[in-house]
């Protein structure tokens, strides 16, 4: 088991070199992997920017990618297909690493189990609204960030009384069990807010719709994804006043510096080619949501 994993990592490194070669077929000489991002940026101006159109070959075996299965707009399992922004980024990055779509095995990665899945080698990487924090860096490596989200509020479309966390005084707010986002609002912005904890955001949305709570809080892109589902279309809006900064990174097992650099190159490539923008728009359509432009698109940080 351990041996095959080493092989996979090794092969991936080779694949990354091949990828640098294949994506820069406009004539640019392949450079060091760390510089591949810049090199390919020029090259893909005439490419379609669509990951599927690129030649995703060279990867051996399967790539196990951890995503959320229950977060519409980010990572969502719909029968046997997977949709969402995290999934789109994951597919793009996988392709750049040399893995075609049929070589990807998506694994459900609930928030509480992400570190465990990486540490025990059950997934190769995780794209699951995974915020880069110092505490997590102690146990896992991060590539990216590939998106900067911020805590925000989701309210009913016809509710104009809430424009920020301060307006929640005396109102009812829903968040998911184990998340600290609601407590942050109670501590920092509105001490008189009523908190309801539910196991999933979808549950929060049902009580938001019926009027029993006035707002749902978590990262803005998650809220936008919820509001963009067909069942919720037109019923809710994201307030658009983010009050925190969450850097979504790609979770990797500790000690994957090389893999991290390859992924960063792929992310830069995705942003420069316009595929990133496309993925954001496609997954938040109809909610009036735009990511915080001051921070997005982000520049991946250097790998440890």
């Amino acid at each position: 088991m351990r041996n095959t994993r080493v092989t996979i990592v090794g092969l991936a490194a080779v694949a990354a070199m091949t990828l640098a070669a294949c994506t820069s077929d406009a004539g640019t000489t392949p450079e060091e992997t760390s510089a591949a991002g810049e090199a390919t940026a020029v090259a893909t101006d005439d490419a379609s920017g669509d990951a599927a159109a690129a030649d995703c070959s060279g990867g051996d075996g399967t790539l196990r990618i951890g995503i959320k299965f229950d977060q519409p707009g980010l990572g969502f399992q719909d029968g046997s297909t997977y949709t969402g922004f995290d999934v789109d980024v994951a597919k793009y990055v996988a392709c750049q690493l040399g893995y075609a779509e049929d070589q990807i095995e998506f694994v459900s990665s609930p928030s509480a189990q992400r570190e465990n899945l990486l540490q025990t080698g059950q997934v190769d990487m995780i794209f699951a609204t995974y915020s880069i924090t110092d505490a997590r860096k102690e146990v896992v490596d991060f590539a990216g960030p590939y998106f900067v989200a911020g805590q925000d509020l989701l309210v009913r479309a016809d509710d104009d009384s809430i424009t920020g966390p301060e307006d929640l005084e005396g109102k009812n707010l829903c968040s998911v069990t184990g998340s600290t986002s609601a407590q942050k609002i109670k501590d920092n912005y509105a001490t008189g807010v009523n908190l309801l904890e539910q196991p999933g955001y979808a549950d929060c949305v049902t009580v938001l719709e019926s009027g029993q709570v006035d707002a749902v809080t978590t990262d803005d892109i998650i809220l936008a994804g919820l509001a963009a589902t067909p069942a919720n279309q037109g019923k809710f809006k994201v307030v658009g006043n983010p009050f925190s900064e969450e850097n979504y990174g790609v979770g990797l097992p500790k000690g994957s510096t090389e893999r991290c650099e390859e992924i960063n190159a792929a992310i830069t490539e995705m942003i420069d080619s316009g595929a990133w923008e496309e993925a954001v728009t496609a997954n938040t359509e109809g909610t009036g949501y735009t990511p915080n432009a001051d921070l997005n698109p982000p520049t991946p940080a250097a790998c440890a």
């Binding site: 999933g200 979808a202 549950d203 949305v205 049902t206 719709e209």
Partner: peptide, 11 residues
């Protein structure tokens, strides 16, 4: 059942 109810608005 809860997930189905949440997804379809018929909890």
């Amino acid at each position: 059942s809860r997930q189905f109810g949440a997804a379809n608005g018929n909890m």
